[in-house]
């Protein structure tokens, strides 16, 4: 069951086509990556799902039915460009934004206290936002995004501005939210985090969807028949015509070989065993980073 279905959405700004018949299908309870270079149309798409702007054509279904204005209470949005009111107190800020999402005041206050506790911010509750460090402000912003327990969470570059420790905590919180049943749409350039937490992705480039599917499947589709080979004594491996080439590489432990077209892994292993004492061989799948760059540059 998909939680969001974006069907053939088109959005045009002043002669510029921001989204060109874009489809996006996010299954319920998953962390879904929305990828793409700057200016590809990610923010435009997110704003349409958020109902900040309207699509020129196409439909957005939430839980299988057409979205209505009231659905925004069910969405939490962390924009890439962070922003909070700087001059008001942390507690007031969180409660105000929670109530804007339709939370009753008493519930907003009790939830706010839980979340402040969870992020070690309780002693800051009566301080003005501008007195907090950047990392703490990011945490406050995260709380305002999730406090009303939305079924859909949209994170735009959630890790930017976090130090590694806080980023780790944030990652745990995101996974936790997913485990509790939230669907998470996750827009980022940080491909390492995509590999860690996203199950599926859609890659947008030049206003169009250029790649979409499960992370594992995409990696399989993009594999280049590369294998990391380890042999006893760290002997140098020579290329074998018709079987494999040796690819110079510094970032693997061992030697990197590329199977020649038509050759089988079985033959290669047999050949390697004949000449060396093979201690290990693993397939090297491309990273999402490589796939991203390759896909974006090819189009």
């Amino acid at each position: 069951m998909n939680f969001i279905d974006v069907n053939s959405v088109v959005k045009q700004y002043d002669g510029h086509l921001a989204l060109d018949h874009v489809d996006l299908h996010v299954p319920q309870g998953t962390v879904y990556g929305l990828l793409g270079p700057n200016g590809a149309g990610k923010t435009s798409l997110i704003r349409i799902i958020n109902r900040i702007t309207r699509a020129d054509s196409g439909t957005v279904l939430l839980n299988g039915r057409e979205m209505v204005q009231a659905d925004i209470a069910n969405i939490g949005y962390l924009p890439e460009e962070r922003g909070l009111y700087k001059k008001i107190k942390v507690a007031d800020e969180i409660v105000y934004l929670a109530r804007l999402k339709g939370m009753p005041k008493a519930l907003a206050i009790s939830e706010m206290e839980k979340w402040l506790e969870r992020f070690d911010l309780t002693e800051w509750r009566n301080r003005k936002v501008e007195e907090l460090s950047k990392g703490m402000q990011q945490k406050v912003q995260f709380i305002t995004t999730v406090i009303h327990r939305p079924q859909l969470l949209i994170f735009d570059e959630p890790f930017s501005g976090f130090d590694p420790v806080n980023a780790e905590q944030l990652k745990r919180e995101i996974i936790q939210l997913r485990n509790e049943g939230s669907t998470i749409l996750f827009s980022t350039h940080n491909m390492a985090s995509v590999e860690e937490i996203c199950e599926q992705i859609t890659l947008i480039n030049h206003s169009r969807v250029v790649l979409e599917g499960k992370v594992d499947d995409i990696k399989q589709q993009h594999k280049k028949n590369l294998f990391v080979v380890n042999v006893a004594g760290n002997e140098k491996i020579e290329a074998k015509d018709g079987l494999f080439d040796v690819v110079p590489s510094n970032d693997v432990q061992g030697s990197l070989i590329k199977l020649t077209k038509g050759a089988t892994l079985h033959d290669a292993i047999a050949h390697l065993n004949d000449h060396h004492t093979l201690t290990g061989i693993t397939e090297k799948l491309p990273s999402m980073h490589e796939i991203f760059i390759e896909t974006v540059q090819n189009k």
Binding site: R51, I52, I72, A73, I75, Y77, P79, G83, K86, L97
Partner: peptide, 12 residues
Amino acid sequence: NRIVEVIVSSCK
């Protein structure tokens, strides 16, 4: 300070 984006995702 970009908070407007958060606010308009909560109200018109």
